[in-house]
């Protein structure tokens, strides 16, 4: 249902945003079609993901804490802070390794820049026209409304016409850095999988290279094989859009949950703390432990112990100690029976 809703909403958005398809470029219909499929797949998978009990728990808790009366202003300020740190600068990846961060930052921002240009273009939301008064002036329209104009031989024009090439170069830097790391890091090599880790890089590489071929064909080869190259480029983009909901790229849509968890953890720290029934030390928030008990019940995990206590109320450190003591007591029982030595 959510998949259909997302698809119908996007069709409506395309129809309205392109002023009844007047600004819609038929040459880009294949891109728009693949995007509709991707929207269906993404909404479907996202709704399935949210149906999992632990995901649903954090979804509701995150919004509940974020919109709590009296805290919204403070929460918005914190949201801006973690948005800058986690999304814009991606600091948590930088702390994993500089090379990983370099690869991810260029990949992420190259893809976002390309997406910010191509999606509105293929939906007919933005389009460009030559000014009626002068062939030297280019006008930009957003939803049919003129939003600016620039001379065709200006720096702005060069940036606008080559923005996708710039995005492609950024993505290629990311792809090569990622491949370099994945080809040399023994740890990554041991756990990486072709479908999950290498396929996305190959797809991005294919999009970038075929896209750059179009520029090369236009400027360096007098349009040689342009039609074939444009079709080849379209195929790479469409395959990637179809792959989007099912492969590694889905993490782009999962990742914002990290922001919700940040609010959950902050609220947990400010609230009552859970105390281990074995050692008496605090080991987490009471809210999380209570949520875990509810979650475990929903997942048919039964941690109630024979003495009436709950295993969730024992801290991880004491659980580890308890394992060794249990083994010890098993041998002790044997010795007491006189069967061991």
């Amino acid at each position: 249902m959510w998949g259909l809703l997302a698809t119908v909403s996007l069709i409506g958005g395309i129809y309205i945003g392109s002023r009844g398809l007047r600004d819609f470029d038929p040459a880009l219909v294949s891109y728009a079609g693949a995007t509709l499929f991707a929207a269906f797949g993404l909404a479907y998978r996202f709704s399935m993901w949210l149906r999992r009990p632990p995901t649903r728990l954090y979804w509701y808790r995150g919004w509940q804490i974020f919109t709590k009366r009296g805290s919204l202003g403070k929460n918005l300020a914190h949201l801006f802070e973690i948005f800058m740190s986690n999304f814009i600068f991606q600091r948590f990846i930088e702390r994993r390794s500089h090379m990983r961060w370099t690869a991810h930052w260029f990949l992420a921002w190259g893809c976002l820049l390309a997406g910010a240009i191509t999606f509105p273009l293929s939906f007919g939301w933005i389009h460009f026209e030559t000014a009626t008064s002068s062939q030297e002036i280019y006008r930009a329209f957003l939803f049919g409304i003129p939003v600016g104009q620039f001379p065709v031989h200006s720096v702005i024009a060069e940036l606008a016409f080559n923005a996708l090439d710039i995005a492609a170069m950024m993505v290629l830097i990311g792809v090569f850095t990622a491949l370099w790391r994945r080809g040399r890091d023994h740890g990554a090599m041991a756990v990486q999988q072709f479908a999950d880790d290498l396929m996305p890089l190959i797809l991005l590489f294919a999009i970038c290279v075929t896209g750059l071929f179009l520029t090369a064909s236009t400027h360096l080869m007098h349009g040689l094989h342009y039609t074939f190259l444009s079709q080849l480029h379209a195929v790479t983009v469409i395959v990637t859009l179809v792959y989007l909901p099912f492969g590694k790229f889905f993490h782009i849509f999962q990742r914002p949950a990290q922001l919700g968890v940040d609010f959950y953890k902050r609220a947990g720290k400010e609230g009552e703390q859970a105390v281990c029934i074995r050692c008496g030390n605090e080991y987490g928030s009471r809210m999380q432990m209570d949520d875990m008990k509810r979650l475990q019940a929903a997942l048919n995990i039964h941690y109630q112990l024979k003495d009436g206590s709950h295993y969730q109320d024992i801290c991880p450190k004491c659980r580890r100690k308890n394992l060794a003591l249990t083994q010890d007591s098993m041998w002790k029982t044997l010795v007491e029976k006189g069967e061991g030595s």
């Binding site: 702390r95 949950a257 990290q258 875990m292 969730q312 801290c315 659980r319």
Partner: peptide, 28 residues
């Protein structure tokens, strides 16, 4: 998985053997 982990620590507090470690510096 690094791209997916959102650092909630559910695994840390639910593992019956007390094994997972939450690495605060990399939020994973």
């Amino acid at each position: 998985l690094k791209p997916r982990c959102i650092g909630c620590s559910n695994c840390v507090v639910s593992c019956p053997f007390g094994v997972p470690k939450y690495q605060i510096d990399v939020d994973q």
